[in-house]
Amino acid sequence: MQALRCSEGRIAVSRGASSSFGTFSRQASNWTAATSQVSKQRTLRVFPVLRLSNIITPNSQSWLQTRRQFSSTPASRHAHLDPPRSGEERRITFIDKDSHRTTFLVADGDNLLDIAQANDIEMEGACGGSCACSTCHVIVEDEAYYEKMAEPDDDENDMLDLAFGLTETSRLGCQVKMSKELDGLVVRLPSMTRNLQASDFVTKY
């Protein structure tokens, strides 16, 4: 169990604030994202067998046990997803900010925000999936999959305009529903560190 948790990359080592004070703005802001190479290597030494792409059905007991347990959000918050019917499982892979991949087997019609929240992937969904914010922004890794999706509508594009780290294959997780065509989809969560490079922050000091 310990090994599994480790393989998900929840490794806490502060970035160590090794630089002088004046250059904070140039640094990564998310201390988990800034996990140093050193710590990753250390982990690798301890656990030579890393299963980075475990395929686990959501809500399975083993999966729940590996997730972090200390959370301010009660379980009721997480979207309830029905398990996929046998033979109709769709694979979706999330790549988090630390480049760790997690794959789930889900049913047709589930949207990416619900899948992420049901499985404790860090995706906020501030507006509750009503396409009124940009906090469930995901980046589709493979352009071919992006092309398979229906074009984002004006509402979604309006929100994507406000997303940090917008790319050509950006989508809102709440608007992408799993289907047979999207089986095997891989999406990346944008790095939060982009926030500090936003124009709001330039030349404050």
Binding site: R5, I11, F70
Partner: peptide
């Protein structure tokens, strides 16, 4: 002892 020190980012 290293597992305790480096792996439990969100430990209780």
């Amino acid at each position: 002892t290293i597992p305790h020190l480096t792996c439990n980012a969100y430990s209780t």
